[in-house]
């Protein structure tokens, strides 16, 4: 049987959406409440890990395959760098170039929200990818994680 018993599966089905919702909440509201992109990203990755544990690897790889995981990883890092470079064009490396507004709203703090989202995506993809790599490794020794370009 792939995955665990149906009790765990059903609990996972009920909880997975909320875990993702909470992770995204932590990521988005990092500048108002504790958390931030890093914690939120790992929480999202934990959701995927829970799915892997409960349903088996084919389910979670069907949702997010390793190719797209590494693509998201790169894209997150590259987005962060691009934000920094946009600030550089505006005058200083990492300048906060978006207009700020009242201090207790979602859009109050300029680039911080975008940086949080970029880090969240990056951490989510990379932690999930490394978990899959470490888990699958050892049983499929013949070849792993390398879409090796010669």
């Amino acid at each position: 049987m792939e995955g665990m018993t149906f009790i765990v599966k059903t609990t996972t089905k009920l909880l997975i959406g909320i875990i993702f919702l909470f992770g995204i909440y932590i990521t988005f509201y990092g500048h108002l409440t504790p958390g931030g992109g890093f914690a939120g990203g790992i929480m999202l990755a934990c959701g995927m890990i829970l799915m892997t544990l409960a349903f088996g690897k084919r389910m979670s790889l069907g949702k997010l395959s390793d190719f797209y995981a590494s693509l998201l990883d790169n894209l997150g890092a590259f987005t962060f760098w691009t934000i920094a470079m946009l600030g550089y064009i505006g005058g200083y490396f990492f300048m906060n170039f978006i207009e700020k507004s009242n201090p207790f709203g979602l859009l109050s703090s300029g680039t911080i929200l975008t940086i949080n989202i970029a880090i969240g995506v990056k951490v989510f993809a990379s932690v999930f990818a490394v978990f899959m790599a470490l888990t699958i490794f050892g049983r499929f020794v013949s070849g792993l994680i390398s879409e090796d370009e010669d």
Binding site: M4, I18, I19, F22, M43, C46, L50, L53, A54
Partner: peptide, 8 residues
């Protein structure tokens, strides 16, 4: 939420 994942 997360302690559950560790236990599983």
């Amino acid at each position: 939420l997360l302690a559950f994942i560790g236990t599983i």
